[in-house]
């Protein structure tokens, strides 16, 4: 499979099947952290970071440890541990978040300062777990899942920064009292989602 295949997968993950706008994953933090542009950028980068790391790791774990017949390499071909997927994924994500946090603290204090508070939040962000679950369901290869992980993270980043910027402008508009906050954010997300759907014809 050539370069075009991966490029098309990337574009699909970022725009057409955006993890927030088409699959609704990570909505909680998407709505809660989109009040200010700076914080949304911080969270966006943290999601790209963690998703690009956890997707390939979880692929390796499912393929070589958990999948039906995955343990054939140590002589146990009839064992199927796929019901453990969920618990293992959560453990891996929590561990990776913790590791990334310690690593950043040691080697890049500035980045740690800016991502610091968002990293723990990410452990329970559905988009990270969802990314790993999707790559099992869609039977991606190793490179495909890396590309998919990065693309989904980038999609989340674009969506949350777009929403934060619009919400920033909305402060100056005349919104009905009861619609302020969540209601308006929902309607805006609907409109952004519609805009992203315009990409759906693209095929490379």
């Amino acid at each position: 499979m050539g370069f075009e295949h991966y490029l098309s997968l990337l574009i699909k993950a970022v725009f057409i099947e955006n993890i927030v706008l088409a699959y609704f994953l990570g909505m909680c933090s998407f709505l809660a952290i989109s009040k200010q542009v700076e914080t949304s950028i911080g969270l966006g980068f943290a999601v790209i970071f963690v998703l690009s790391i956890t997707a390939p790791i979880n692929w390796l774990i499912t393929t070589y440890l958990l999948k039906d017949g995955a343990l054939a390499w140590i002589g146990l071909p009839e064992i199927n541990l796929s019901y453990l997927n969920l618990i293992v994924f959560i453990a891996v994500i929590a561990a990776v978040v913790q590791l990334v946090e310690m690593f950043l603290d040691r080697f890049s204090p500035t980045l740690y300062q800016s991502l610091g508070i968002y990293l723990p939040l990410i452990a329970v962000n559905c988009s990270i777990l969802g990314g790993s679950l999707f790559l099992v369901e869609r039977k991606y290869t190793f490179i495909e899942s890396s590309v998919f992980g990065f693309g989904s993270g980038l999609g989340f980043f674009l969506a949350i920064v777009a929403l934060a910027s619009i919400r920033h402008r909305m402060k100056y508009s005349n919104v009905p009292e009861q619609l302020k906050g969540v209601g308006m954010a929902m309607l805006l997300t609907g409109l952004i989602s519609m805009a992203f759907m315009a990409f759906s014809g693209i095929d490379i």
Binding site: L21, A22, Y23, F24, P176, Q178, L179, V182, G183, M184, A185, M186, L187, T189, G190, L191, S193, M194, M197
Partner: peptide, 15 residues
């Protein structure tokens, strides 16, 4: 049926 519909319906329900 598409995803924007969900956002808009939920937004209106909250309102």
């Amino acid at each position: 049926v598409l995803s924007p519909g969900a956002f808009i319906v939920l937004g209106l329900i909250v309102w």
